[in-house]
Each structure stands twice: as structure tokens, then as C-alpha cells.
């Protein structure tokens, strides 16, 4: 299990044990954490699972795919550490990961 801290836009923290193999998005959705909508269920088709990866975890979470980059380009409040959380696979190496959520996914 990897312990992931999801921080809502208003600062509310959720610390969840997520099974390796799931995505960071699935860890949030299956635990009913508000702020990650993931309308398409992880098909990289909707850009409603936008998160900001904590600076300390940027290397471990990898980089955006071309598809993901194009989708994020049109999301709101995009920063250098923006990712679509459906595209980050959870591994044991991500134990301790912190992600923050934008004000809105729509």
C-alpha cells in the first residue's frame, strides 16, 4: 500500500492507503474524496481529475504524455506541476505522495 495525501482546495486533507496498480485518481474516487471528478473513469478523455503534484514528488510521478498535455492545456489554473491523476499509476515508490486539487474541475 502507498499512503497518499489528497488535499482539497479548501485545505481539507485526506490520507488514504491506495493499492499499487490503481491510479492516483482511482484512489480518490473509490474513497469518495471530493475535488477529483474523473468523469471518464480514467480514459484520459475529460481532464476532470486535475491535481497539483507536490514539488518533492515530481520526479517519481513521471511526466505528462502528449495526450495529457493537450488536455491539461485547456483546464483551468494549470501550473508546471499539474497532472491528470488518472495518468499517475500508484506504486510502492509513491508511498507518501502529496497531491493538491484545483478550485474546480469543470
Amino acid at each position: 500500500m502507498a499512503k497518499i495525501t489528497y488535499i482539497e482546495h479548501d485545505g481539507t486533507e485526506h490520507v488514504i492507503d491506495v493499492k499499487p496498480g490503481l491510479s492516483v485518481m482511482e484512489g480518490a474516487v473509490k474513497n469518495n474524496i471530493p475535488g477529483i471528478d474523473a468523469d471518464c473513469g480514467g480514459a484520459c478523455a475529460c481532464a476532470t481529475c486535475h491535481v497539483y503534484v507536490d514539488e518533492a514528488w515530481l520526479a517519481q510521478t513521471g511526466s505528462q504524455s502528449a495526450m495529457e498535455e493537450s488536455m491539461l492545456d485547456f483546464a483551468e489554473e494549470v501550473h508546471d506541476n499539474s497532472r491528470l491523476s488518472c495518468q499517475i499509476k500508484v506504486t510502492d515508490a509513491l508511498d507518501g505522495l502529496i497531491v493538491r486539487m484545483p478550485a474546480s474541475q469543470h
Partner: peptide, 10 residues
């Protein structure tokens, strides 16, 4: 063509 989709939606 994700950019066309996202921009189209807007």
C-alpha cells in the same frame, strides 16, 4: 485531437 475537443467544448 484532444486540443480540438477541449477548445471545441469551450
Amino acid at each position: 485531437a484532444p486540443a480540438e475537443f477541449m477548445a471545441g467544448k469551450q
